[in-house]
């Protein structure tokens, strides 16, 4: 399972936890998950943060650039529901408002183990 990470407007808290998910303690990589550099190489998007006005179109473009079949993972409360930024002035909405979301990882930020857990559900291992 290869994912392209898109920061749609996060506070970078989620990013730190994602990095931890791939670090020695949880090691999401051992289940076959990997972050890749291009959506073309990916099987889905790992979106963090609330979708801001500036990032809505790029997010959609990234989704379009991903070969099918593809999944969208919303990581963190912001991505799932808007979190603390819900309804703020520069915000379009949660990821669900822009793209079809397949997996949600709640938490602000989610624990590395929770992220790994969600990725394992995708890789099936």
């Amino acid at each position: 399972m290869q994912l392209r990470h898109v920061d749609a407007g996060s506070c970078n808290g989620c990013e730190i936890e994602i990095a931890q998910a791939f670090a020695p303690v949880s090691d999401a990589g051992r289940f076959g998950a990997r972050l890749v550099a291009s959506p073309r190489h990916a099987d889905g998007l790992l979106v963090t943060g609330v979708v801001t006005k500036n990032m809505a179109v790029p997010l959609q473009m990234t989704f379009e650039a991903t070969p099918r079949p593809r999944v969208v993972v919303a990581c963190g409360d912001c991505a799932v529901s808007g979190g603390v930024f819900a309804g703020a002035y520069g915000v379009v909405g949660s990821v669900r408002d822009v793209l079809p979301v397949d997996v949600e990882i709640p938490g602000c930020p989610p624990e590395p183990s929770e992220i790994t857990e969600a990725l394992r559900r995708l890789t099936g291992r």
Binding site: A23, P24, G29, R30, F31, G32, R34, P69
Partner: peptide
Amino acid sequence: RARAEGRIGPPIIQGLLDLRKLVRKEAI
């Protein structure tokens, strides 16, 4: 590499598994 970094790392056959997946995907 993973072992040296203290990780377990993906299985050695992961590359082949990924290839099997990729050939079934859409070409863009």
